[in-house]
Amino acid sequence: MGENSQTLDKERRDFIKKVLKGTIGGSLLLVIPAGLRSGIEVPVQIPGIRDQEYDLNKKRFAFVVDITSCIGCGSCCVADKREYKVPDYHYRTWVERYLKDFDDKIYVDSPNGGLDGYQEPRKDLDKEIRDTFFVPKLCNMCNDPPCVQVCPVGATFRSPDGFVLVDEKHCVGCAYCIQACPYSVRFLNPVTHSADKCTWCYHRVRKGLLPACVNVCPTGARKFGDVNDKESEVSKILSGPGVFTVLRKAMGTSPSLHYMGARREVI
């Protein structure tokens, strides 16, 4: 097994080298990314990716957040911070707590982005609460992303498989994309001085792993998968009769992040 995987690794590395040296254009579509660090038992969480040729044009991923399942534990926020060592006071993902009183007034808070969990009820409100729920937030992976439109240098882009990514080596750090994002998921990373944001854990997905936040969610409030794979959970959910919404539809961004059970007050 060991020897076998070593030769596979070598072949894969040679292949990548060849592709990078030569004409990358068409062949980049089929590149297999570098494998996981050796010797780890890792289940295949997204089938059809690991150790296979990956066609950027054949994949279409979607993220579903089920608000009716979120318990506001903040596991996702902790996982995200650990996966990326996100600098303090900057958030790739966060969880908001909504409260609605009997006058339909909405009160929202998200202390430290939910990173420390919600240990206390809100003490500053003296209202009878009618409805209360948690809303996890992350990159909407728009099909028509305003951040990509405004980037002056092409440092943020939408890959053919639908991920809006940041080229950290090309970004000039002008923060225009941060202004343009209607969801405020972007920030200027104080360590790299480049724009940074949630990538739906692209590097994990390309290794057949679920995004870190989806992987740790104890109640399945965060779901992720390939829409083109008819067997995937996300594909089944999105084909079903459930009511789905996207955030800020009027912005015309066409997000690939869908919410289930989101009240109309959720922005």
């Binding site: 990509v148 405004v150 002056p152 240098v153 092409g154 000039v172 002008c174 480049s194």
Partner: peptide
């Protein structure tokens, strides 16, 4: 202001036609 002033020439080298800032 730029996070990477040393890369400022990227604006001239790879200006994005869709960006309102790239033409500056």
């Amino acid at each position: 202001h730029l996070g990477h002033p040393e890369r400022s020439m990227n604006m001239m080298i790879t200006p994005s036609p869709s960006s309102a800032m790239a033409g500056f």
